[in-house]
Design a protein around this nucleic acid. Sequence first.
DNA 1: CCTCTGTGACCGCAATTTGG
DNA 2: CCAAATTGCGGTCACAGAGG
Length: 278
Amino acid sequence: MPVGIIKWTPNSLLETFHWHTSFEIGYCLSGKGWFYFGDKKFSVNPGDVFIVNHMERHIAQSDPENPSQYIFVFFKKELIEIEKELLIPFFYSPRKFINQISSELEAAQEIGRIILAVNEEMEKKRTAYPGMIRSYILQICVLLSRHFKSHISTGEFNQVFALYYKLAPVLTYMHENFREPLELSDVAKKLDLSSSRVRHLFKEIMGEGFKDYLLHLRVNEARRLLLNTNLSIVDICYQSGFQSHNPFYHAFQKIVGMSPGDYRKAAMRINSPFCESD
DNA sequence: CCTCTGTGACCGCAATTTGG
DNA sequence: CCAAATTGCGGTCACAGAGG
């Protein structure tokens, strides 16, 4: 089954960014909170819909006073690749794209209803339900592409689309190899492109530089290991792809806002259970 | 004493910017 | 697209404090 669905209530603290290769649509059922995509931040209200493409780092956070609950539907891009227009909402420049569709908009309400229907199909598992779910996903994607069509010109879409397909192997390679020493020139060699071309490509599509993206991958891995293992901080530093401990402490402090040790202690207090790796 | 964690100074070079 | 200029990352070293 190439479609998955989960109900999830994010923590109010300490959630770690994550990435995945599948596309994802989130629907806020209740509560309040925030949704982060890279440096973008959206306030969440019940009924809001969120679009997550592959490889953009993201995380939701609950308002401690009123925790938010979501349904997330995720699926492989192959499911909708049959029609290029359906990909429009998922191929964008993260820098400019608005990942949220506000609950007041009709598109969000329609999509919300369908997501609830997907949920019901998934629970009841009636005859041939996977077919019904696939058709629902297609409906959602059609609604999304109609919604975003007005925001994204065909020219821009075609451009981003082409660039994304070019960059996809770079991202895959990075996600598989960030634990090793990894340089832009290695990636460029893999793709048989000049370093400067890859650099521009990367910045243009991902909205942040190669180094920053890599650093976030590594710090995120460190956070995951801090939460889920008993490894020493120095071990975690090396396993996350850092070559010595000093840059690790600095990067961690810069991105997370506290030292690795403090992070682990805080996490144990709060007992944060969630951390995903693809 | 040693180990682990964390910080500061410094330096070379890769990453990025700039200017053709 | 390339080359020169600049920036800032990440690596080394040194050291301090906490705790066993």
